[in-house]
């Protein structure tokens, strides 16, 4: 459909490759665009306009709205129940769990070793009731201390892992 210069006459020539204004006249509009009506002078002068309505009377003085309180900064915020537990805000409780758990495990191992190396357990029992109670306590405390220590260490490791998550 294109002619020798590569212009398709079905479309506007100025938007096609190879358009030359000297050779190709601009395309005529396909439809007659309606002429926008402009201002026209009316016969008989300007028409009457409505009277200006006064503003309604004010019913009362406007109540001043209080300014919103400034947003509290994290440092200046009042300590709430959840933000200041027992006043220990600065303490790293994950480290407390790790160190405390290690201490509990160490104490449990010492108690176990003391119980195992005490010859009174094998060659005659003590006669003193207090000594017997302490020996029984040493035997009974080792396992709870060991279990709690391991639990505390695991909890500390978990909290530290959560802390390092992005």
């Amino acid at each position: 459909m294109a002619d020798d210069s590569g212009i398709d006459p079905r479309y506007a020539a100025q938007f096609q490759r190879g358009y030359d204004p000297a050779v190709h006249p601009p395309a005529a509009p396909t439809e007659a665009t309606p002429v926008a009506p402009g201002p026209a002078r009316l016969a008989g002068g300007p028409q009457r306009t409505a009277e200006r309505v006064p503003p309604p009377p004010r019913l009362g003085e406007p109540v001043p709205t209080p300014a919103p309180p400034p947003a509290p900064t994290p440092e200046a915020a009042a300590p709430t129940d959840d933000e200041a537990p027992l006043g220990l805000r600065r303490l790293r409780f994950d480290l407390v769990l790790l160190v405390g758990g290690a201490v509990l495990v160490a104490v449990a191992l010492v108690l176990w070793w003391g119980h195992a190396s005490d010859q009174a357990n094998f060659y005659g029992g003590p006669v003193d009731a207090t000594t017997l109670y302490l020996q029984t306590l040493r035997y009974q405390l080792a396992q709870p201390l060991f279990l709690s220590g391991v639990l505390a260490v695991v909890a500390g490791v978990v909290v530290q892992a959560i802390r390092r998550m992005p």
Binding site: P85, D94, P144, L147, A152
Partner: peptide, 19 residues
């Protein structure tokens, strides 16, 4: 053992709150 577990749990709650 239960008492020591409760103690560890209390410290764990504090750690999570701190976190």
């Amino acid at each position: 053992t239960a008492g020591l577990y409760c103690l560890v749990g209390a410290v764990l709650v504090l750690a999570i709150a701190h976190l």
